[in-house]
Simulated scan of single mutants.
Amino acid sequence: MSSEQIDALLSYVTEYGMKVVLALLIFVAGKWIAGLVRKAVRRAMERSKVDATLVGFLSNIVFYLLMVAVVIAAVSQLGIQTTSFVAVLGAAGLAVGLALQGSLSNFASGVLIILFRPFKVGDFVEAGGVAGTIDEIGILATQMHTPDNKGMTVPNSQIMGGQIVNFNAFDTRRCDMSFGIGYQDDIDRAKAVLAEMVAADERCLKEPAPVIVVGGLGESSVDILCRPWVKASDYWGLYWDMQERVKKRFDAEGISIPFPQRDVHLYRAAE
Score class of each variant (00 low, 15 high):
M1Q: 12
S2Y: 09
Q5K: 09
Q5F: 10
Q5Y: 03
D7K: 15
A8V: 10
A8T: 10
L10K: 05
Y12A: 12
V13N: 10
T14H: 11
E15Q: 03
E15L: 14
V21Q: 04
A23M: 09
L25A: 13
G35A: 11
G35Y: 10
L36H: 09
A40Q: 12
A40W: 15
A40K: 15
V41A: 11
A44D: 02
A44C: 00
S48G: 12
K49N: 09
K49D: 12
V50M: 08
V50A: 06
G56M: 09
G56V: 04
L58Y: 01
N60F: 07
M67Y: 12
V68A: 13
A69I: 14
V71S: 07
I72N: 01
A74L: 04
V75K: 01
S76A: 14
Q77C: 06
G79S: 03
S84T: 13
V86A: 07
A91L: 14
A92T: 11
G93C: 04
A99V: 13
L100F: 15
G102P: 01
S103N: 10
F107P: 00
A108H: 06
G110K: 06
F116Q: 09
F116S: 08
R117S: 09
P118C: 07
V121G: 03
A127S: 04
G128T: 04
G128K: 03
T133N: 07
I134V: 14
I139V: 15
A141S: 14
M144R: 01
P147Y: 05
D148L: 02
T153D: 08
P155A: 05
P155K: 06
I159K: 01
G161Q: 05
N166H: 06
F167L: 08
A169D: 06
F170I: 02
R174Y: 08
F179W: 07
G180I: 00
R189Q: 12
L194A: 07
M197N: 04
A200K: 10
C204D: 04
A209W: 00
I212V: 11
I212Y: 01
V214G: 00
L217G: 06
L217P: 02
E219H: 07
D223I: 11
R227V: 00
M242H: 03
E244W: 04
K248S: 10
V264T: 13
V264Q: 06
A269F: 05
E271R: 14
E271P: 06
